[in-house]
């Protein structure tokens, strides 16, 4: 390697190390007693006590279950609603389709959390405040999902649909047997983006929820980590790691798919 190449490699490593260091630090704090939070003694004793303390102080398993229910329910609903709408846009040149599609794209820019005041009022009318369904409902018809799936369906050869029709498939039959299976990579990409996005959102769930039974991880962590709660630093680190662990593990296992999905998706 040329000296210049070695220098660039060194600089890359240095920046990478700098970039990951806040996370490494959180790991350090979480796995060591509070006394070592800022003393980097390589012989400091390892401990799981901070995790025990975090779990004793707040119901993180329950929060995790809530988040899990939220993202699964939301993704299932998004798949169904977006598939139907995308199919309409891709294959039925119905009257008003162009205007309707332009209107759908408005939601790409103006996400429901921008309209918190009115959307909260709507949820209150529906009696869905402080429910997991209430957190998910505004995001079920996702403009982004409709857009991605429409692209995928448009690239499906029409001949396949015609063949299926000749075999006697109905409209929904064609969709289910021809279009959906061929769009599997798009579903995967959209699914990863949707799950990681909704795993991480905070503002809207904060507004909607006010009890342990509905609060997702982010809100639970927000309540837990607030400076006025007076919990010590190592415990907050442990709680933070607990909250991000499932998504983090999924990311480490399926790194390539994650990065490709984000790239495909463009907009979170």
């Amino acid at each position: 390697m040329s000296p210049r190449g070695a220098l660039e490699t060194g600089a890359t490593w240095l920046l990478a190390l700098l970039w990951i260091s806040p996370l490494l630090y959180a790991l350090w704090a979480a796995f060591h007693p509070a006394a070592f939070a800022v003393t980097f003694d390589p012989f400091a004793p390892l401990t799981l006590e901070n995790f025990g303390e975090a779990l004793a102080r707040a119901p993180f398993p329950r929060y995790m279950l809530n988040t899990f229910i939220l993202v699964t329910m939301l993704l299932a609903a998004q798949f169904v609603l977006c598939t139907l709408a995308a199919y309409a846009f891709a294959r039925y040149r119905f009257k008003g389709a162009d205007i309707a599609f332009a209107l759908v794209l408005v939601q790409l820019m103006i996400a429901p959390e921008i309209l918190i005041v009115e959307n909260y009022a709507t949820l209150a009318h529906l009696g869905l405040v402080d429910t997991i369904l209430g957190i998910g409902l505004p995001y079920m018809a996702s403009a982004f999902g409709i857009f991605l799936l429409r692209q995928a369906f448009k690239s499906t050869p029409k001949e396949l649909e015609e063949a299926a029709r000749l075999e006697g498939c109905s409209t929904l039959g064609v969709l289910w047997r021809v279009y959906v299976p061929l769009a599997r990579p798009t579903y995967l990409a959209y699914g990863l983006v949707s799950v990681s996005h909704h795993w991480n959102t905070f503002l809207w769930p904060l507004v909607v929820t006010n009890s342990v039974e509905t609060r997702p991880l982010t809100v639970g962590l927000g309540v837990f980590g607030a400076p006025e709660s007076g919990v010590d630093w190592s415990v907050v680190s442990a709680a933070t790691l607990l909250s991000v662990a499932p998504l983090m593990l999924a990311f480490l296992l399926f790194q390539r798919q994650f990065v490709q999905s984000f790239m495909r998706a463009g907009i979170r």
């Binding site: 709408a85 309409a88 846009f89 039925y92 119905f94 408005v106 709507t122 079920m140």
Partner: peptide
């Protein structure tokens, strides 16, 4: 095709109206 198109779109349209356009 107009009818089927709009029918397919309806579920998503209701939610989009309720949580984006109406607000």
């Amino acid at each position: 095709r107009h009818v089927i198109g709009w029918l397919l779109l309806t579920p998503a349209a209701i939610l989009l109206i309720a949580f984006t356009y109406w607000p």
